[in-house]
Write a protein that binds this DNA or RNA. Structure first.
Lengths: 271, 271
DNA sequence: AAATCATGTTCCAATATTTGGAATCAATAA
DNA sequence: TTATTGATTCCAAATATTGGAACATGATTT
């Protein structure tokens, strides 16, 4: 009926219109290649990206020349070494991580289980650091790893301290993929838990992201530094009962608060 | 005298003419910011980059929007979390690293000291993995770290297997910064050692990069996969005598050869 | 040996983006 | 209120990107 006279893209329903020009397009290609399970040939990337041949070829060439991608002798494109170099810098110099580090160690000593520090980035949690006793599993497996917010302890803890407006905007974008039988399946279900998390100040992950893995997490909120994050203690379900997590919740919250305080002290008053 | 009629940029004396267009310029800004010791303000970056205000501002905005940089509330730019995410992928999926991993563990068991896997990238060695017993130092300190080739064990080992032509091209670019009293100071000095390394098949680092740190390394050459790399065993000078390194040279070489073989077997014949 | 096919690379005029100096805005100090 | 410093926005001119088509290469088939 309404003739839609105002057809220019409004805020409503706008599908992530990339406004980052050439850079954005190149990074999209980089993302595509570096997310792939194995190195990709040109034609494969062509099919996946939907870009025209010429354009795609130039983007790939530029990325290779910059060291962000590597072109192996068998003509397959794979992530470049320079990505590691960038990340190494980012990690080593991250001030928030530096400040949090001793508190993570303390928390690990108190609980004996693996401790994670994760930061909210878009609709994901990116793990900035971890401390674990035995390096049974691969050392750095978690660092830099991105997980959904809605099914991780750190994620839910972080969400719980967001202003309602920002929370609503975020939740509207979630897809609620069911990783396990206990993964939340809807915004209302998640919101119900977040209300609880806000009250008690900590969040559980009841095997919601990975079967057999439980955790308890507390939020770290440093709005003056633009940081929304969380600490957690994680363990295998067979060894760590929910009752144990309830007990640890106290020390996890203490760690989170200590980090919040230290951020204020060591990183200055912020804005 | 000669009127330089052919003035277009020849191969000679060409100063790294970036041919990667907009991407290259943006990444240069990213590099600048992510290499800085602390987060930088707009004006500081302006001075360091030498770019015009408008241009720089747009580059920074795009990088921020892409998550490659973060703009803190105090208007300082710092490395963005997405860099970690990219690297996490690059690291986890790197096939060469996956293949080498078990051999690194074996080598660690045999020597009891820290083992590194580094890959040649431009004129640097980028550390892809490490295995160490006690996580006394920061866990991931080394991974992704870039060090000069001419003063590291892995670096010299890698150089020793390069075709002379490529080696000459590379060496012409070295700056030979003297990190310690034993750092090589010239191409001829380095070349003399490389001749020796070629003969014996392993290289030492006699506290050339960092005082008090020694290592012995062996080259990994997989030309069909475009990989030039090295493994090393590193230890503190007070605990590890040069004689000990001489002894370990044998097992380090064995590890390197085992990795070379496994690359052929597990990664296929290559090109 | 010639033809066919699959894949990767290069070309270049039309088009969209970047460029960068100058104007504007914002916050703080004098 | 008026400087001052720093960040942001503007927009016509300069430049890089775009993408369809032609070309190159190498393997496979006829």
């Amino acid at each position: 009926m309404a003739k839609r006279e105002f057809d220019r893209d409004d805020d409503v329903g706008r599908v992530a219109a990339n406004d980052t020009g050439t850079l954005g397009k190149a990074i999209a290609v980089l993302e595509l290649v570096s997310t792939a399970q194995t190195p990709l040939r040109f034609t494969e990337i062509l099919a996946l990206s939907g870009q025209p041949r010429g354009t795609l070829h130039r983007h790939l060439s530029h990325l290779v020349e910059e060291g962000l991608l590597n072109l192996a002798p068998d003509l397959r494109y794979e992530p470049g070494m320079r990505l590691l170099k960038f990340a190494s810098n980012a990690w080593a110099k991250n001030q928030f991580r530096t400040v949090a580090e001793p508190h993570l160690k303390t928390l690990h000593e108190r609980t004996g289980e693996t401790v994670h520090l994760g930061i909210l980035h878009g609709q994901e949690i990116i793990y900035l650091d971890k401390v674990e006793s035995r390096q049974a599993v691969r050392m750095n497996s978690q660092i830099g790893n991105a997980s959904p917010v809605y099914c991780t302890g750190v994620g839910k803890a972080a969400l719980s301290v967001l202003p309602q407006k920002r929370l609503d905007d975020l939740m509207a974008q979630f897809s609620f993929h069911s990783y396990t039988p206990t993964t939340h399946r809807s915004a209302s279900e998640l919101m119900a838990e977040l209300l609880m998390v806000r009250r008690v100040g900590y969040a559980f992950d009841r095997e919601e992201h990975e079967s057999g893995i439980r955790c308890v997490a507390a939020p770290i909120d440093a709005p003056r530094h633009g940081i929304v994050a969380g600490v957690s203690v994680t363990g295998p379900a067979y060894r760590v009962a929910m009752e144990q997590l309830e007990i640890w919740a106290v020390v996890v919250k203490e760690a989170a608060h200590a980090i919040e305080r230290d951020v204020e002290v060591r990183l200055g008053p912020g804005r």
